[in-house]
Design a protein around this nucleic acid. Sequence first.
RNA 1: GGGGCGGGCCGGGGCGCCGCCGCGGAUCCUCGCAAGAGGCAUACCGUGGAGGAAAGUCCGGGCUCGAAAGGAUGCGACGCCGGCUAACGGCCGGGAAUGUCCUCGGCGACGGAGACAUUACAGACAGCGCAACAGAAAGCGAACCGCCGAUGUCUUCGGGCAACGGUAAGGGUGAAAAGGUGGGGUAAGAGCCCACCGCGUUCGCGGCAACGCGAAUGGCACGGCAAACCUCGUCGCGAGCAAGGCCGAACAGCGGGUGCGCGGUCCGCGCGCGUUUGGAUACGGCUCGCCGUAUCCGGACAAUCCCGCGGGUAGGUCGCUUGAACCGAAGGGUAACCUUCGUGUCAGAUGGAUGGCGCCCGCCGCGCGGCAACGCGAGGUACAGAACCCGGCUUAUAGGCUCGCCCCCUUU
RNA 2: GGGCUUGUAGAUCAGUUGGAAGAUCGCUGCCUUUGCAAGGCAGAGGCCCUGGGUUCAAAUCCCAGCAAGUCCA
Length: 122
Amino acid sequence: MKDDERGAPQFRFRKRERIRTRREIGAVFDKGVRWSVKGMRIHVLPNNGPVSRAVFVTVRKYGNAVARNRARRVVSECWRLAKGSLKAGYDAVFVIYPGPDEASVRSPQMNELVRRAGLGAS
RNA sequence: GGGGCGGGCCGGGGCGCCGCCGCGGAUCCUCGCAAGAGGCAUACCGUGGAGGAAAGUCCGGGCUCGAAAGGAUGCGACGCCGGCUAACGGCCGGGAAUGUCCUCGGCGACGGAGACAUUACAGACAGCGCAACAGAAAGCGAACCGCCGAUGUCUUCGGGCAACGGUAAGGGUGAAAAGGUGGGGUAAGAGCCCACCGCGUUCGCGGCAACGCGAAUGGCACGGCAAACCUCGUCGCGAGCAAGGCCGAACAGCGGGUGCGCGGUCCGCGCGCGUUUGGAUACGGCUCGCCGUAUCCGGACAAUCCCGCGGGUAGGUCGCUUGAACCGAAGGGUAACCUUCGUGUCAGAUGGAUGGCGCCCGCCGCGCGGCAACGCGAGGUACAGAACCCGGCUUAUAGGCUCGCCCCCUUU
RNA sequence: GGGCUUGUAGAUCAGUUGGAAGAUCGCUGCCUUUGCAAGGCAGAGGCCCUGGGUUCAAAUCCCAGCAAGUCCA
């Protein structure tokens, strides 16, 4: 990372970049398009806004609370580092399946998903 | 030094870069004449940010709403005694019982001293009940075998058989069989008698009490199950922060507003007056946050517009973290705990913050090398994430520290 | 976050004053039929979710745990 990118907005991930209500998440599940790879699934719906928003959920049976929180944190961190080079204006819901929760494993899964979803470099 | 049991405590540390949530500041944006208000605004600064169990939701409270005169019944929980506490099914102290070990006394039943552990530990002469199978008999308590007696009969003179009576010492059944041991006694036996042990009753003494000690006395039944019902005593109204309070779009509903003149010219037009309505300021009034009057600014005069109303949806906000709190010190108490003091410490999310990556160190056992200190190598570093807040209980947990007791080895 | 319910044969469920566990469907074998289905007869199949406790005795009573399901905006 270059010096002039320290604290740059494309590497931050604030509240307004997250989908924050059950209704909006339900809309992405109902109307969005889905792609999946082993360990992860994505639902995407255009939101016609200036920024993309995302949310991360685990499947119902995903160990205890510590394991679920760690999975969402790791995947969220991958999104934070990757989203700056993607197209804006989409709502994305990531569904995480059980697997090794390390950035070296989750990051390639996410890259493959966003490539298939057509969110690649603008 | 090693191992076991029990109690108490801790449960990783440091550096760098990039992030997340709250609070305070600064800056920016929006509204407003202003004071100010608001902002899921910020390549900014400062500061705080999981646990001993945050868990299970098994108990007890606070808090909130609902219900409610009081009492009884019902239902539920609890149950040796005393204390602690806001309260408890928790904790502390004491008692009793049971079990194990050790030791002393006794022919024996058993008793005494000590250590450790366990106990939902009120009531079974208030009631309704239960005990399968086995066994002769299982609860207003019993003769199957056996033992003994006298009678009759048979006899190979040892005894056998029949019916009658006595008997709870022995056998067998059972989870449980009618106080136990030793002796006397007897036809055989039996608390039938005696001593001791156990049990019951009465009295005295000690203790707040549970209970203990001692004496006298009864010859001995008043068996077990209440963690099924039940009785007695004590306590308990129901829900739960997704409780509940406030603000409040949009859509639908209800009520009010639809005027006059001039100009342009036929249009969802402009201006003035008027009507109505919102806001601000000034003055006055009083029941002190509302009303009245005046001025200024703005909206509307309608096709789908303007204003008001109630309901309270979407959403927002409060509840929301300073409290029976924690930590430390002093004092009181055997202890649980209490009292006083302190520039002492305290997170608040809401698809849900406390994270990611990299490096170093610590700790643990294992293997190899070494007399040893130590070095090298491959590993391991748990259980688990606040969601209204406390007091407990229970369950999960790598590894470590510490206190007490016991066992083994080595040394002096 | 909080309230509540349920774990018994392969499946769906019974099982009360505690005394050695049943029903229906399914499964296996035989009979019947040329064969299959239906029908008839016989049979197998169970650590009563797990671990403690009370009791002589526990699927049943008590305590703790685990796993499913369901409701509350």
